[in-house]
Design a protein around this nucleic acid. Structure first.
Lengths: 195, 195
DNA sequence: GTCAATATTGACAAGTATGTCAAAGATGAC
DNA sequence: GTCATCTTTGACATACTTGTCAATATTGAC
């Protein structure tokens, strides 16, 4: 290929994920994205056609390894500990930045899902993926006699819970409150001690 | 008072709540608000100074009777049924409009909370109020030996849950899914039959 | 009915964001 | 080294949004 792209796409997409997480979809402008990535606005328009497309790429970039990462977090043979670990990590990620950030996917859901069918599809697939992974872990827990609820319904419920936590972060930005929320949820779930 | 305002403020605020719910905070322009309310943009600027102020008024208008309404929904002497009723009503409200709407407060949280201290305060107070009402009902349930959890922690957890449901509405717009979520949550909570 | 006070209206200015494009620059294949 | 091909760059046009303001209209008090 001649006339090779000069910017590093990974860096641009990382920057995009950052800006979108911090400012939300609507408030983020191509200028912001150019500034954060160090790539001129014109180049971004050349490489991606619009903010929507750039967002889609950024989203793919963001979720690329995310679901396998989630799966990894659920490896603990004790089911309750596994979910505790997962939720803890999610909260940590949400609070890791010193300048308040926010959840990339949840912000996108609230602002961009309705705007573009492609984005909507992306977000649905992501939540579906999250649900499937948690469902599988719950099914395993049922087999291991560590859980006595409905795997499907509970997985969906947990997806809802994670979204709720992301919203709470926006208002209170209080890690303790988020931890309390998921721990209360886990305490109520019908887990049994590993036999 | 001379030179009386000619538009009906309630109608304007109702319209504002509608637009903000549908389009979200950032995507809503003063022009949208003028169009939906039938009041000229200039008049809106005269009456309110900015979108932020108009939003604050709209938010007060929205929440004015909301918390007492919530309290009313929790009147059922059977605690579990009371919360079931409340959550069901919230879901119904979320899905009541034929053109997809969205949760006014949750959208505001995601988009406007960080933007303006006044708005942030509004939203915190609202969630705090929600929490207090649910906490009180749970304390009553504990007295009635209908609930055996921690009232404070559970109330906070339920606030998180309602936010999560509002997010899910944006993606799936599926009432069944939202009902399933809160029913799973309620099923896991340590309610006891009324004695 | 007059008048002071306020609301309404449309026009204006300024700022911001988008998207396009031609010119210039860089690159790999040959 | 040449060249076709793609990228980069900055400028440009367009559109949108905000906020202001002077002119006009309306109102209630007197």
């Amino acid at each position: 290929m001649v006339g090779t792209r000069r910017f590093n796409e990974d860096e641009v997409l990382d920057a995009a994920v950052n800006v979108f997480s911090k400012k939300g979809f609507n408030a983020t402008t191509m200028l912001d994205l150019a500034a954060e990535s160090g790539v001129q606005r014109g180049s971004l328009y050349n490489a991606y056609q619009s903010k929507n497309v750039l967002f889609l790429k950024a989203f793919s970039h963001y979720t690329e390894n995310f679901l396998t990462f989630i799966e990894g977090e659920l490896q603990n043979p004790d089911a309750k500990k596994a979910f505790n670990q997962l939720l803890n990590t999610l909260v940590e990620r949400l609070c890791s930045d010193k300048d308040v950030k926010g959840c990339f996917s949840t912000r996108a859901i609230m602002e961009a899902a309705q705007k573009c069918p492609d984005i909507h599809l992306c977000l649905t697939s992501f939540l579906d993926g999250l649900e499937v992974i948690m469902k599988k872990r719950l099914e395993q827990a049922i087999k291991d006699k560590q859980f006595s609820g409905d795997a499907q319904a509970t997985a969906r419920y947990l997806v809802v819970l994670t979204r709720g936590i992301a919203v709470i972060e926006r208002v209170y930005n209080d890690k303790e409150r988020m931890v309390e929320a998921y721990q209360t949820a886990l305490a109520y779930m019908p887990f049994q001690k590993a036999s």
